[in-house]
Amino acid sequence: MADESKTPANEAAPKKKGILPILIGLVLSIGLGAGGFFAAYSGMLNGLLGGSQNAAHAATDAHSTEIAEVAFVPIEPILISLPGGDTPRHLRFRAHIETIPAHQKAVADIMPRIMDVLNGYLRAVATEDLERPMALFRLRAQMLRRIRLVADQREIRDLLVTEFVLN
């Protein structure tokens, strides 16, 4: 029995497996979970599950309802003379205000205020700012903000610039 109590030196203690397999399993499970969420959220699984036709039909109905509830109020064309230089330069600007049909008359009634705000803003903008590549996006956002300050926030949906010409 004395032989049984002694263990050989190579079997002294079992080896620890380490933390690496746990980390690999954790990373893989998070990655697969995120991939599954993305596939479900983006609609990639609709084709496999047969829901693509119903989802497309519902999206078309929602889109057509949204389009049906839009009215546009035209803004009179604005012609602004730009300072500086030997040759006279002008800015021609024309836009429409997007609103819902229920607010169309209210927006048209305050058009003199809107024209005043736009004239004042466009005259204050430097000519160099108008010539920048992204100028129209910044100007559109600034003009929309000013129009919303003059009008009720709920009445104005968007500002659609239809003409922006520097001569």
Rank of each mutant, 00 (worst) to 15 (best):
M1E: 04
P8W: 13
A9G: 01
A12Q: 09
P14I: 11
P14T: 06
K17S: 10
I22K: 15
V27Q: 03
I30S: 04
G33D: 02
A34R: 00
A34K: 00
F38A: 14
A39N: 00
A39R: 06
A40E: 04
Y41K: 14
L49D: 11
S52Q: 15
Q53R: 12
D61G: 10
H63G: 13
S64A: 07
E66W: 06
A71I: 05
V73L: 04
P74M: 02
I75T: 08
E76S: 08
P83A: 09
G84A: 10
G85E: 04
D86E: 13
T87V: 15
P88W: 10
P88E: 15
R89L: 08
F93S: 07
E98N: 09
I100P: 03
Q104K: 07
A106G: 06
M111I: 11
Y121W: 12
R123L: 09
E128H: 09
D129Q: 11
D129E: 08
P133I: 08
M134Q: 15
A135G: 03
A135K: 00
A135Q: 07
A141E: 11
M143V: 04
L144Q: 08
R146V: 00
I147G: 02
R148G: 00
L149W: 01
A151D: 10
D152M: 00
E155C: 08
I156M: 04
R157V: 06
L159H: 06
T162W: 01
E163I: 00
